[in-house]
Design a protein around this nucleic acid. Structure first.
Length: 1014
RNA sequence: GCUCGAGUGGUGGAAUUGGUAGACACGUUGGACUUAAAAUCCAAUGGACAGUUAUGUCCGUGCGGGUUCAAGUCCCGCCUCGAGUACCA
């Protein structure tokens, strides 16, 4: 019987679905295990072979854990809000929900085909109102919370109001905006409701504010920092400009330290942790105040600066403000007014990108104003310069040219003095950034190294009340508004310009229907086009605005939430995905607790993986989830790259216009030969006038016009589906691919084949190197696809896909299948026949081996057991290390060995099937059934490794001389070191190696190696 | 620039606490079975050299040093590639 993988796989996929084999129970005596994949955005292109890599790995793990007796939660869903569906809607008018639905269908079909053990009954979709209802609710919870620095957790904003009422905010230690005014209880009471609301917005964990945002005019929306790559939008590569807009933000900065600390408690890849650490960017230093004296300023003013090296303050010879700094206008003297304004305008014009790209040009302008050095009381000139960023620290620096390269360069450029404050260090060439340098010329700091000097300086500053120790973070609050349609609507309406939350019982606020998905004519977000988008406060529903007096009807928020809103908590939803009252019941949250294994791409390091940790910590603070880190272990799967195919177009000039019009493609080896020949010709300085290529007719090559410019080859992507395993192009298919290739000429190899060039690139439609898993499943089966993806290499590593190699894995599965069958000679194979009139019946039959299913119940041999238990041991180790590629090799070795041993014993093959069933579940189920089982193999007990089968009595010792292995020798493991040495030295080959010399030393490591020195 | 990761045959990749480098595959070559293909099976396959064969010798894990009886693995110094980040005070 042949291995009919297509039939077998369809059969078992149907079986698993109708029997709900992988449905996870929220009540079980078994220990729980939660295996999660990052859910996909369902894009229109469908899955390519790179996408399922992580899902296959997690599926193997999930299935393995079921065999090991765990109650496994292995869910899947869709991050179904997103830009592409909306862009498509703008172009075609098709509702994004429709596009998304269609894409999800494709995704689901493709995933089902690979045989994943997902519990689909728990599927989530972020664009589903049943789901985003809870996203909206979490948003309202963030709005109703502030961050208490004393308790170091989020608290109810209502508690804060109570404190304001009784004592004002002077004693409150909470995270809030820098500009929050101080007030006492009486003042608070005197504030209008609106004023009180405005103050509370400074404390809320999600808040409205005028923010400098990254505005992308082409996409018509703001972007978060992690959505910008190299100064342009991550999606589409459109330019991004800075713009001030009223936006919702998330006060993620309140959690900066806890997000850092939490990294120590989770088992995530170090590079990912590093990247989050860098993104949060903690720096320890001090805030220092400098008093400003300017003829223009009537009152004294103060410039605050942040520095990580307060100990270098005696080296300050100037200050620099960001051109955007609010004090610039106030302090600039009349004399410098024009020059400063000119400079400020010039920098404002330059885009952020230009400013970033151009790091080397030093520019700046003196303001005419001076600050007073807090210790020496000297006058320090105040400059502005675009190397100081408004968005970091206070937007102002105390410049220490001898200790900071940028300050040094600036000082050199503008001839500002460079006082030296380091002992025995020459700073004539560049600034000294060495922290071990000892201080000098610094009064009470003289002789101290940096670490001690910083401590001392902060102490002195705090004593004199001119500065204070401070920790600064690079992390910015996250902008949470998007000017898009296809996202979660905010549960927010505006009353007197102030945002009001809609009560939980009225959620979800459904996304309204609109006709046009573009911004409105007056530049409002797409929701501005909605006819029914007002809130009736009395009746608590969304309504159309009445004409005339609005009464209790208020406009709703026009922005929607960003993509990361829905993905920041979905892992909790899976625990209880059909719960309509709350995002998940307390009971289910406590049962499943957190993700035991999370698999996904490292590109989410500073996006999803940071935001979701933030939300989890917030939910934890509010007592809504039991743990404050939701994923104990995380693995980043590497990208599968494509192997692009290239044909080479021969471009040359010709006097004959007919010839130069002609498109000529040259086979790769041929091309290399031609290039080689040309080189030889050029080297010997001989010209040629003709180059005859016989296999494809004669092609005349024109006389070179110049030495270099006579002809060249242009690589052109060819679709990889036209190329076979030996890199031969299907020329006809290629010709039919494009109209302009129909008439092209092909210069082939002498044997008539046309060879393409290959190169590894990212898999993408535009490179025609995409391989569709559907095709692989059809040609080789899902089990082969699963095993081959694992076999390609280590899970975490990027690696190229090469369909040619898949035959190895496929052949292995066939070989394993044959272990269960007995060869009964040749038979007519009904699967392969074709009409042949010469045959007496009109058919010509093809012979194939007739095979009968049969396994033996006899006791296996010692050798059989040995190979089985070796395999059990290795596979368990491999799965524990996520080294799935090596376990595939192990299976191959096992099957090769068992085939050689002619083993068909049930006692060996049955456990072997369980081992392999996580990797190749369909074939395992089929053979399991043939073995007489009537339940799924998926919960069969994992075989137990027994050491006794591996115990050896002898060892083949490598005998090496001076570290070089020369021959092997089988010796009993019972031998003593001395006996081994004696036996080895007595061996004739040892004598031959020594050639009469006496060994200086003999190293014997019993069970390992013998090394003879001398 | 800074941080992190990686360099092993023609290719993808193996190699436990330092202990037989190249497992397992792909590809290539040769062979068997076939009228023929497909499928399947067998053998060879890091490089160089010597030998009729058996076999032997040398070189080999990015480069240069070092530690060790023994180094792909440990230490020091470089080079190259990849990822992240970027005037962060």
């Amino acid at each position: 019987m042949k291995y009919h993988f297509n039939d077998i796989e369809a059969k078992w996929q149907k079986y698993w679905a109708s029997n709900q084999t992988f449905k996870a129970d929220n009540h079980s005596d078994k220990p729980k295990f939660y295996v999660l994949d990052m859910f996909p955005y369902p894009s229109g292109a469908g899955l390519h072979v790179g996408h399922p890599l992580g899902y296959i790995a997690s599926d193997i793990y999930a299935r393995y854990k079921r065999h090991k007796g765990f109650n496994v939660l292995h869910p899947m869903g869709y991050d179904s809000f997103g830009l592409p569906a909306e862009q498509y809607a703008i172009q075609t008018g098709q509702h994004p929900a429709k596009t998304t639905e269609a894409n999800i269908k494709t995704y689901r079909r493709q995933m089902d085909q690979i045989g994943f053990s997902f519990d689909w009954s728990r599927e989530v979709r972020t664009s589903n109102p049943d789901y985003y209802k809870h996203t909206q609710w979490i948003f309202t919870q963030l709005f109703e919370s502030y961050y208490d620095k004393v308790d170091d957790k989020a608290q109810d904003i209502a508690d804060l109001v109570k404190i304001f009422k009784s004592k004002g905010n002077k004693e409150v230690n909470a995270v809030c905006d820098e500009e929050t005014p101080l007030f006492n209880a009486e003042q608070w009471d005197a504030f209008s409701i609106k004023e009180q609301q405005e103050i509370l917005l400074n404390y809320r964990l999600t808040f409205l504010s005028d923010t400098e945002v990254n505005w992308c005019p082409v996409l018509g929306t703001v972007l978060a920092n992690d959505e910008i790559v190299n100064g342009v939008s991550e999606r589409g590569g459109h330019p991004v400009v800075r713009k001030k807009m009223k936006q919702w933000s998330m006060r993620i900065t309140a959690y900066a330290q806890r997000l850092l600390d939490g990294l120590n408690t989770i088992d995530w890849p170090q590079p990912l942790k590093d990247s989050q650490t860098n993104w949060i960017g903690r720096s320890d230093g001090a805030m220092v105040s400098f008093e400003v004296k300017s003829e223009k300023l009537k009152a004294k003013s103060v410039i605050d600066v942040f520095t990580t090296r307060p100990d270098t303050i005696f080296g300050v010879s100037f200050m620099t403000l960001a051109p955007e700094h609010e004090l610039v206008e106030k302090i600039t003297t009349d004399e410098y007014k024009n020059a400063v304004e000119k400079y400020v305008q010039a920098t404002a014009k330059r885009s952020e990108r230009d400013r970033m790209a151009d790091v080397k040009t030093i520019s700046g302008q003196f303001t005419g104003a001076y600050a007073e050095h807090p210790f020496t009381k000297e006058q320090i000139p105040i400059w502005i310069g675009d190397y100081v960023l408004a968005s970091y620290g206070t937007g102002a620096v105390m410049a220490v040219p001898c200790g900071d390269q940028r300050d040094y360069d600036f000082a050199t450029h503008f001839n500002i003095p460079i006082p030296n404050i380091f002992k025995d260090i020459d700073i004539s060439e560049q600034a000294c950034e060495d922290k071990s340098a000892v201080m000098a010329n610094s009064e009470f700091l003289d002789g101290l190294p940096a670490k001690k000097a910083i401590k001392r300086m902060i102490y002195e500053m705090e004593k004199l009340n001119i500065g204070t120790g401070k920790i600064n973070y690079r992390l910015r609050d996250a902008v949470f508004s998007r000017q898009r349609y296809w996202g979660e609507p905010f549960p927010v309406y505006y009353k007197d310009g102030m945002p009001q939350m809609i009560d939980a019982k009225h959620l979800p606020i459904l996304l309204p229907e609109i006709e046009k998905y573009l911004p409105t004519e007056d530049g409002k977000p797409p929701l501005g086009n909605a006819k029914t988008w007002y809130w009736d406060e009395k009746n608590n529903r969304v309504v159309s605005p009445p004409s005339g007096d609005l009464g209790d009807i208020y406009p709703l928020e026009l922005n929607t939430m960003p993509g990361w809103a829905g993905s920041s908590w979905y892992f909790n939803r899976y625990m209880d995905s059909s719960n309509s009252n709350e995002f998940a019941s307390k009971e289910s949250l406590e049962y499943w607790e957190s993700v035991d294994l999370y698999i996904g791409g490292s590109e989410h390091a500073t996006g999803h993986l940071l935001y979701s940790r933030f939300w989890q910590k917030f939910l934890f603070d509010k007592g809504l989830v039991p743990v404050d880190e939701y994923a104990k272990k995380l693995i980043n799967q590497g990208m599968i790259l494509g192997t692009s195919a290239f044909v080479y177009r021969w471009d040359f000039e010709s006097e004959d216009p007919q010839k130069s019009k002609k498109t000529i493609f040259v086979s790769k080896t041929k091309m290399e030969k031609i290039i080689e020949e040309r080189k030889t010709i050029e080297n010997s300085k001989k010209g040629i006038s003709k180059n005859k290529i016989s296999s494809s007719g004669t092609i005349e090559i024109p006389q070179p016009t110049t030495n270099n410019n006579w002809s060249h080859f242009t690589p052109i992507h060819a679709d990889v589906s036209f190329v076979n395993a030996s890199n031969e192009l299907d020329v006809e298919a290629f010709k039919n691919w494009r109209e302009e290739y129909k008439e092209a000429e092909f210069v082939t190899e002498p044997d008539g084949t046309f060879i393409v060039g290959r190169e590894v690139e990212k898999m993408s439609k535009s490179k025609y190197n995409v391989v569709n898993p559907d095709d692989i499943c059809h040609d080789y089966g899902a089990d082969t696809l699963r095993m081959y993806e694992m076999f390609l290499g280590p899970l975490e590593q990027a690696k190229p896909w090469n369909t040619a190699g898949i035959t190895g894995v496929h052949g292995f599965l066939k070989k394993m299948w044959r272990l269960f069958f007995i060869d009964e000679g040749l038979e007519k194979d009904p699967d392969y026949y074709k009409v042949d009139i010469n045959d007496e019946k009109g058919y010509k039959w093809f012979a194939s081996v007739k095979e009968r299913f049969e396994v033996s119940d006899n006791e296996p041999t010692k050798e059989n057991f040995k190979i089985l238990h070796k395999t059990i041991k290795k596979v368990e180790e491999d799965i524990a290390n996520f080294s799935f590629n090596t376990s595939v090799s192990t299976f191959m070795i096992a099957v090769n060995e068992l085939t050689k041993q002619k083993c068909n014993n049930r006692a060996i093959l049955e456990p072997l099937l369980i081992l392999i069933s996580s990797y190749a579940p369909h074939i395992a189920e089929e053979l399991w059934e043939k073995l007489g089982h009537n339940t799924s193999i998926s919960t069969a007990k994992f075989p137990v490794f027994e050491e006794k089968y591996l115990v050896e009595s002898t060892k083949v010792y490598p005998i090496s001389f001076n570290g070089k292995m020369r021959f092997t020798m089988e010796l009993s493991l019972d031998l003593s070191k001395e006996q081994i040495e004696k036996d080895v030295l007595a061996h004739e080959k040892t004598q031959a190696q020594l050639a009469g010399r006496t060994p200086k030393k003999v190293i014997v490591v019993p069970g390992k190696i013998v090394n003879i020195v001398g």
